[in-house]
């Protein structure tokens, strides 16, 4: 018995991302790549600025799924391509990442959620796929 109905539009989730979040994520995840905290290094590899870890954006999508599912532990599949970087400025305001979800279909296995993850109106995750268990 699923709590979802095919076609249901889930409430948008908007998250603010600042440099402080990226530093915390670097420590918590063990991904210490300096392109996620050093403007100098980001510039040397041709990036427009410090960018969020692709996995940080995917973690935000997971957070939205947990919110829609009513708590953690329901995600049975999650994945995406990292198609566009999320540039995070060195200020207090940061950037906003918006996670939109629509229930694509519901089967005995669970609910497949069509995700759209954007920053500044541009999609940042490609071919996102998410399934919440029954």
């Amino acid at each position: 018995m699923s709590r979802f109905t095919a076609g249901e539009v889930l409430p948008d989730q908007t998250y603010t991302v600042t440099r402080a979040h990226l530093v915390r994520y670097a420590g918590a995840s063990g991904d210490l790549n300096p392109i996620h905290w050093s403007d100098r290094v980001a510039a040397t590899v041709g990036l427009p600025g410090v960018i969020a870890h692709g996995m940080y954006t995917l973690a935000l999508a997971a957070r939205a799924l947990d919110t829609w599912a009513g708590g953690p532990g329901h995600v049975v599949e999650l994945g995406a391509k990292f198609t566009r970087p999320v540039v995070v400025p060195d200020d207090e305001a940061g950037v906003q990442v918006v996670v939109r979800g629509t229930v694509k279909n519901v089967t005995g296995e669970g609910a497949q959620i069509a995700l759209e993850v954007t920053c500044g109106g541009e999609k940042v995750l490609g071919m996102p796929r998410a399934v919440l268990g029954a």
Partner: peptide, 8 residues
């Protein structure tokens, strides 16, 4: 890192 997927 181009793509990441998890099956739980």
């Amino acid at each position: 890192h181009g793509e990441q997927r998890f099956l739980y």
